[in-house]
């Protein structure tokens, strides 16, 4: 499982295509040929990752947009980002 430092920069992998179907974001990993679906908050995070952001910036974007405390947001976002990294859906730049 990946762990992230707040300063790590993270961005959606280039080999992904995404679209919205029936209100759900669907992503195709073109190399793996696998399809993934995001729920609403997952979609918000995924869309924010279309440009490089630090992990801390992702926390801030989510807490600004949604009614959630920082600690829970951090725990949830870390879990999501780790899962995305495991699936090669994001690239992490750990400077």
């Amino acid at each position: 499982m990946n762990t992230f430092d707040n300063s790590h920069e993270i961005v959606a992998a280039e080999n992904c295509l995404s679209t919205t179907i029936d209100g759900e974001t669907v992503v195709l990993h073109t190399d793996a040929g696998k399809y993934y679906g995001f729920n609403e908050v997952g979609t918000f995070v995924w869309e924010s990752l279309q440009e490089p952001h630090t992990v801390e910036e992702v926390y801030e974007a989510v807490t600004d947009e949604y009614d959630v405390g920082y600690d829970r947001c951090r725990e949830d976002v870390d879990e999501l980002l780790a899962e995305l990294a495991d699936k090669d859906l994001v690239t992490v730049d750990a400077e």
Binding site: Y35, F38, V41, E79
Partner: peptide, 16 residues
């Protein structure tokens, strides 16, 4: 202070 209702972000494995 308009924030949207929060649910934990999820990604599930099943453009076309």
């Amino acid at each position: 202070g308009s924030n949207r209702e929060y649910t934990s972000p999820e990604v599930t494995e099943f453009v076309v």
